[in-house]
């Protein structure tokens, strides 16, 4: 069964000086463990689409289903990671990681133990009593991911989650995060403007048109590699082929 079903989503914005159609009609679905990237020309409504899937924003038309149940508000089935790690600087890493559990009132011993396991597994346990300012950008991003995964979501949404990092850190963090997500078998939808990043991480890439957004193309990414990692993908001969294709599709709008 599909973890995520997006059906005929449309979104209009009302303002005093008129109406903007951000998304015209978007439908797609995602299977368990799949990694899907959404790319498109800037301002095409990628992030809006993600907000709608998360339940933060109500679409003008259409429906979103996660695990078969309709998304009408923010639920614990969905984890959402933003561009900045947004670790609260007055909380230790440990307390930051438990933030989501506190907000959802599910700070049970089992869930706390799970969060601690994640910290141990991904090398942050010894830094649990440190404050965010004492950690590197990559570690902070990892902590933010653990905070999101601690609530045990079925679906993870990444909104330009790595774009605030410098290039070097970004490459290692995407490798890191990719490893964590594959190991935890989390279904992920990522919005990005970074074409190489989308190719290196995704199983499928959705290319959106200019506003009002529609799906222009759905691409399957296949590198014929066992144990693929974002870094190793970048060295694959297919990589530039995919890149050129997406580049062409998007540069029509420039």
């Amino acid at each position: 069964m599909n973890i995520l079903e997006v059906k005929n989503i449309a979104q209009k914005y009302q303002a005093e000086n008129g109406e903007t159609i951000a998304i015209k009609d978007v439908s797609f679905s995602a299977e368990k463990g799949e990694f899907i990237s959404i790319v498109g020309p800037s301002g095409c409504g990628k992030s809006t689409l993600l907000s709608i899937i998360s339940g933060l924003l109500k679409p003008t038309a259409g429906e979103v289903f996660v695990n078969g149940s309709r998304v009408l508000e923010v639920t614990s089935h969905i984890g959402y990671m933003l561009q900045n790690d947004n670790l609260l600087d007055w909380r230790t890493i440990y307390k930051n990681v438990l933030f989501g559990l506190e907000i959802r009132n599910i700070k049970t011993p089992e869930n706390v133990a799970r969060a601690e396991d994640l910290l141990k597994k991904y090398g942050l346990y010894e830094f649990r009593n440190n404050y965010p300012s004492q950690l590197s950008g990559g570690m902070r991003q990892r902590a933010a991911l653990i905070r999101t995964l601690a609530v045990n979501p079925d679906l993870l949404l990444l909104d330009e989650a790595f774009s605030a990092l410098d290039y070097q850190t970004r490459l290692t963090v995407t490798d890191d995060v990719y490893g964590i997500l594959k190991q935890e078998q989390v279904t992920t939808i990522m919005v990005t403007h970074d074409i190489p990043e989308s190719i290196s991480m995704s199983d499928r890439i959705i290319i959106l048109t200019q506003r009002p957004a529609e799906i222009k193309e759905m691409m399957s990414i296949d590198f014929n590699m066992e144990n693929r990692t974002p870094l190793s993908c970048r060295n694959n001969p297919n990589f530039s082929r995919y890149f050129n294709h997406i580049w062409k599709e998007l540069s029509i709008y420039e």
């Binding site: 923010v74 933003l82 900045n84 007055w90 933030f99 907000i103 959802r104 609530v151």
Partner: peptide, 29 residues
Amino acid sequence: TNREYIRMASTFGATKGQIFLKVVFPYNI
């Protein structure tokens, strides 16, 4: 208060009261 912090709390479904107690107030100590 940092808007991104508030947005992050909303992604976990925080109520306005929770946002105040766990983000806005500590942010303003």
